[in-house]
Amino acid sequence: MKLLRILLVVCSLLGAATAHAEKITIAAAADLKFAMDEIVTGFKKSQPGNDVEVIYGSSGKFNTQIQQGAPYDLFFSADIAYPRELAKKGLAASDVKPYAVGRIVLWSNSMNAAKMTLVSLADPKIGHIAIANPKHAPYGKRAEEALKAAGLWDKVQPKLVFGENISHTAQFVQTGSAQVGIIALALAVNPELAKKGGYYLIPDKLHNPLEQGFVITRRAAGNVLAKKFADYMAAKPARAIMTKYGFVLPGEGR
């Protein structure tokens, strides 16, 4: 009995202590990995005692998970269509806000991609071209659109290999198994990949805009910290970080 009473006291103390600190969980598209880490670090400094956890993954998967009740408070999608779908189903607690426009690039580990264009992909020396799976990955869909717009799709299709998501696509290229790949600009500028070789920015007129957007989920309705983070994304420090990592911000050209 005595032990039980001590336990109860300890529990109530712990409960009291955590009542002040808030915690939010963010689901973010894989291409945000480097930028979001830095933004969250800055945000935490301004919010001492509160905690922010970020989980990275595929936007489509997050979309499905949130519809099935996954405990994410904010959802940063690589394709704005997903948060819009959530909002339509009444699963959002805020408007869908565009936060960046993604760009796709040619990148290679073994060749200088800076000197390439899409036409280079037809070169018979290139055996495999990695793109994200166009069936469900937004970056893959844009890559397909760009190749089609450039009139190259039929020529390169036999060489295509499909990554599960955009970072898996980058792995195919990184290991040299595919000589070249179409990946997110945000990944190509990250130091790990940037030191391997340059990139060729694929003109954005060749594909639909890769509009990226986020939303506060219904679960976080009234969550003050979630609202604060949403506001922080629009503030200067966050925008600077996004630009640094190769994202084009809504309303800004490149």
């Binding site: 595929s58 489509g60 998967k61 499905t64 290999v161 990554g163 898996h168 195919f172």
Partner: peptide, 26 residues
């Protein structure tokens, strides 16, 4: 298979990957 196959129809797109793709594409 997903990691090394490259999801190529007839070469490395096996049944389990195909199901996964269907799911991902809703």
């Amino acid at each position: 298979v997903l990691m090394i196959g490259g999801n190529i129809p007839g070469v490395s797109r096996v049944a389990s990957v195909q199901i996964y793709d269907h799911v991902e594409a809703l």
